[in-house]
Design a binder for these strands. Sequence first.
DNA 1: TGGATATATATGGTATATCATGGAATTTCA
DNA 2: TGAAATTCCATGATATACCATATATATCCA
Lengths: 156, 156
Amino acid sequence: MALFLSTYVNKLDKKGRISVPSGFRSALAGQSFQGVVLFKSQKHAALEGFPMSYMEDISERLDHFDLFSDEQDDLATTIFAQSVQLPLDGDGRIILPSDLIDFAGLGEQASFVGLGHKFQIWAPEKLEARKAEAMSAVKDKSMTIPKNNKADKGRA
Amino acid sequence: MALFLSTYVNKLDKKGRISVPSGFRSALAGQSFQGVVLFKSQKHAALEGFPMSYMEDISERLDHFDLFSDEQDDLATTIFAQSVQLPLDGDGRIILPSDLIDFAGLGEQASFVGLGHKFQIWAPEKLEARKAEAMSAVKDKSMTIPKNNKADKGRA
DNA sequence: TGGATATATATGGTATATCATGGAATTTCA
DNA sequence: TGAAATTCCATGATATACCATATATATCCA
């Protein structure tokens, strides 16, 4: 599997430890860094999750700005400074830092939400509201998915 | 790890000694010079930090200016002439020169801020405001991350 | 088809290694 | 020979690796 798909609810233990769903782990196969990168969502009380390769990609793209430019500085501070790198332990778990647990309002459980090349982590209660909201937005605005532009294929 | 990620707060002792976060040290693995290069930021009361290999990259960028042009001369003087090379000691620490400590306004603690290929060192109090500023700038100006231009690949 | 056995995943607990930090000892250089 | 810088060592806190169990899923054989 190359994509993060569907939703899984797993338990968070006292030490902040939680299993990454097996399907998500296989999406990470072949990565140089066996683990995930997380940061606080700008829009929701949730965490954004990426594979390391995606962060490296972002870093390269930021190099297209002038060094020390406002854009490079602001974007890098917003993205990289706030992100944490969490390695998988031998059993496929990660340890969530307590400030991220607080930010997302996680209790005994957390939902892993697959979103293709990235995923999110939510408190299960809050996720329900979010899903309803997303579905009604798609419906009301009759949203559709754009054509795939082949010329663009290199980077999603 | 190939990138400088997240923010770590470490202690500065009386001799100006401070631990480089372990994650940052592994980003330096494989470098010919085991240590970092620091210089004063032009925009902030903070220090800019790079691995030695990246300084060569900066040097290449300066080659885009004409030799002996004002720009090249000024930038080179600002960056290269001011930078200090700090080796890691046996325990992964560096010693900050006192003028850099004063410039950044560091007290008992200092924050290492990961920004991808580079990092910054801040007084923790000042960093909070900076992060808020960066986040609102990204939001207000609707900054986005440029697509990766493959034609550019040779030099990022 | 049914039962039994294997495989993989999620989860809980414990032992071990690493890291950050403070201080002392030794070296270097003026 | 004195001051500064570098190296070395000790320690508590924290994070990492390890092991054990349970639950579910898949496989195999009779």
